[in-house]
């Protein structure tokens, strides 16, 4: 009984060690499952609130916050994919707001890690000319006051930033 108990505790400690090691790559402004946005611009702070309420409906916020996505185009598709999940509650307007936050967060992480900011290399982004038909596009036509790339609209396909709903990316469950 005692051996079994010790074995269990040992396994639990080992698992905890693995989990903590996996979490070491997080940014310094992470607090538990949330993010300290006090240093963020007001519009991004507001966007974070929408992100926190909507995206934690099916999964923890760790999923997007821990994701090592450095391509804005990928975030555009990801948000569109999540928006179309059953009962996501993410309408077109909220999708745009969430995307705005995620792109800002991505740029922040890139700066913290000293990685090249994708906004400095617009050639990395697909443009309307070479992107596949109906693919998401992120337009590089200016900067927000915090220096991040502007995130355009989402949803009805009439605006740049997210794919048209009819040509959206595939749907997956929120779980890994």
């Amino acid at each position: 009984m005692t051996t079994e108990w010790l074995r269990g505790v040992g396994a639990a400690l080992a698992a905890a060690g693995v989990c903590i090691a996996l979490s070491c790559a997080t940014t310094t402004n992470r607090i538990g499952d949330s993010l300290d946005t006090s240093q963020y611009p007001p519009d991004i702070r507001d966007a974070y609130k929408v992100f926190a309420v909507r995206c934690s409906r099916c999964h923890t916020l760790a999923r997007p916050l821990n994701a090592r996505i450095n391509d804005p185009q990928q975030w555009v598709r990801y948000v569109q994919r999540m928006r179309l999940n059953p009962a996501s509650g993410i309408n077109a307007k909220n999708g745009e707001i969430i995307l705005r936050f995620l792109l800002h967060y991505m740029h922040q992480r890139q700066k913290e890690r000293g990685e090249p900011d994708t906004e400095d290399s617009p050639e990395a982004l697909p443009t309307s000319g070479d992107a596949p038909l109906g693919a998401a596009q992120v337009e590089v036509d200016g900067a927000l006051e915090d220096g991040s790339r502007p995130v355009s609209s989402i949803g009805d396909g009439s605006e740049v930033g997210m794919p048209e709903s009819q040509t959206s990316t595939t749907k997956t469950e929120a779980t890994p």
Binding site: A11, A12, A14, A15, A16, V18, C19, L22, R63, A67, Q74, R77, Y78, P126, D130, A131, P132, A135, T175, P176
Partner: peptide, 16 residues
Amino acid sequence: RDARSQEHNFAGSLQA
């Protein structure tokens, strides 16, 4: 589609 549009997403979880 253009091969460039192909994306790989990796995710996982662990519970002990």
